[in-house]
């Protein structure tokens, strides 16, 4: 991935999502040494000339806050379905934009959300970008099928 999409590009793509969908809600900035809290995870699979997946994870509190800003609703009004839609939107847009700079043709899966079961897939970690929003961690990872890195 380093050759195709750098960590800086992954961060930029995610920050662009923030600017478009969550303006005036605080900047998303690169973070170091921030303990990741991963209550909520979503991913999209990319298949074709490049195969792998893009995963985004954050805490439930952050996911609810994203949904609240995205859907212009009070946090108390946010339902579980809203959280799923918001995280699905986030991973769909970030994954779609990463896909657009990978070798074509590729297809993008629908967002796959962590439903509380065991969140495992046979893959090797290729990139990991840690970002912070209002001091809360958000992690974007790119995975490749086992043995392809």
């Amino acid at each position: 991935m380093t050759d195709l999409v750098s960590n800086e590009t992954i961060a930029e793509i995610t920050q662009t999502f923030w600017g478009a969908y969550l303006p005036d809600a605080g900047d998303l900035i690169p973070a170091v040494d921030l303990p990741a809290i991963e209550d909520v995870r979503g991913r999209v699979d990319i298949d074709g000339a490049w195969t792998g997946c893009v995963e985004v994870s954050c805490s439930m509190a952050v996911a609810r806050k994203i949904a609240s800003v995205m859907f212009a609703a009070e946090p108390s009004e946010i339902a579980e379905a809203d959280v799923r839609d918001a995280v699905g939107e986030l991973v769909n847009v970030v994954g779609g934009n990463i896909k657009s700079i990978l070798p074509a043709p590729t297809s993008l899966s629908v967002p796959i959300l962590d439903d509380g079961g065991e969140w495992r897939f046979a893959a090797d970690l290729e990139s990991e970008v840690l970002l912070a929003w209002a001091g809360e961690p958000i992690v974007v990872r790119v995975w490749r099928p086992e043995g392809t890195i």
């Binding site: 969908y21 995205m70 859907f71 839609d85 918001a86 699905g88 939107e89 769909n92 847009v93 629908v110």
Partner: peptide
């Protein structure tokens, strides 16, 4: 539309 946000608004 694949965007939940677009579908909603």
């Amino acid at each position: 539309d694949d965007s939940a946000v677009i579908r909603r608004f």
